[in-house]
């Protein structure tokens, strides 16, 4: 992987509109296999001598822009990070920004690539809407989702493999010129809005439990079922018809937006439990605290957390 590739994968914003504020993560020099000291790693990430799966650049990534920051981490149990995030900010105070978080389905082939290509493809489309007032945000949100779906479908996969075709969940958030935040979600990656008055979860889950609860089953019973977290919608060639949950959240007061994968909310899913951590320090502080919290709780899944400090429009507040 070249330094250019690394930059691209880490910031996820191959955009002309991308501001220079992106940090360039230093490509880490391979220090040799942790197990046998061997230097050759095969394309699947295994040491060519002792077979040990090597730590990947995607195992832990932190991105800090001005008013938004993200942390993605492979957690403590999964061998790879199959979550991906992409974020872009046009200004320094999140008047115009886009965020995408995707979680590769672990029972699908190339789940890490599925989430990567989906997030990259989507943020490229969303980014174009940031400085072009002629583009409708809800329309751009739908276009980004369709582009992500096409990117996942384009991945090569093996029909004879017991694992299914490449698949991932999806959540995006888009804001321009201090207006409302438009989110869209498929699967169980989530967006939350935290403010002193109108905190809200912006993305219903497409999960077995959510379907049961919608059908009248006691949430406590549905959530305790082993099937609770089975997702009912996703991106991929075998996905059911795409039915994203699109939500427009007006920004009338300062607050914070959280976009995250289930590796976080498995341990704290309510606004009450999340709020103190989300509101801590800078966006990067909050993202690190949330990531650390999920690891402390067991880190059973990949963890991705993006936190945005969102202020009302400068024009209305001025």
């Amino acid at each position: 992987m070249s330094a250019d590739d690394c930059f691209c994968e880490c910031c996820g914003a191959p955009l002309a509109a991308a501001p220079a504020a992106h940090p360039t993560p230093a490509p880490s020099e391979p220090a040799g296999c942790v197990d046998c000291g061997g230097s050759a790693v095969d394309p699947d990430g295994y040491c060519e001598r002792c077979g040990r799966l090597q730590s990947a650049p995607t195992d832990h990534i932190e991105i800090e822009l001005e008013a938004l920051a993200g942390v993605t981490d492979k957690g403590l149990v999964h061998p790879r990070n199959e979550d991906s995030m992409a974020l872009v900010e046009l200004d320094t105070d999140a008047q115009s920004f886009a965020v995408v978080v995707c979680d590769g389905v672990s029972t699908s082939q190339h789940a890490d690539q599925a989430s990567r290509v989906a997030a990259d493809a989507a943020v490229a489309v969303l980014g174009k809407a940031l400085d072009d007032p002629s583009i409708d945000l809800v329309g751009a949100t739908a276009d980004a989702l369709a582009t992500a779906q096409a990117a996942v479908i384009a991945l090569v996969w093996d029909r004879t493999d017991a694992l299914g075709p490449p698949s991932c969940t999806y959540v995006s958030a888009l804001r321009r010129d201090g207006g409302a935040v438009v989110t869209a979600s498929i699967g169980d990656t989530r967006a939350y809005w935290f403010a002193s008055q109108g905190s809200a979860r912006l993305s219903p889950d497409d999960s077995w439990a959510a379907d049961q609860i919608a059908g009248g089953v006691d949430p406590a019973i549905a959530e305790a079922d082993p099937r609770a977290h089975a997702i009912t919608h996703w991106l991929g060639v075998d996905a059911p018809a795409l039915a994203p949950h699109v939500v427009t959240q007006a920004i009338d007061e300062p607050g914070r937006l959280l976009v995250c994968s289930d590796g976080l909310w498995n341990y704290a899913s309510t606004i009450e439990r999340l709020a103190p951590m989300v509101q801590s320090g800078s966006p990067l502080d909050a993202a690190q605290i949330l990531n650390h919290f999920a690891l402390e709780q067991g880190g059973h899944d990949n963890i991705t957390v993006v936190v945005v400090t969102v202020a009302p429009s400068k024009e209305t507040s001025a």
Partner: peptide, 14 residues
């Protein structure tokens, strides 16, 4: 194969 630590992975055969 030589066991790796818990939560780590090794390729056992290609």
């Amino acid at each position: 194969v030589t066991p790796a630590p818990v939560n780590e992975e090794r390729l056992a055969a290609r």
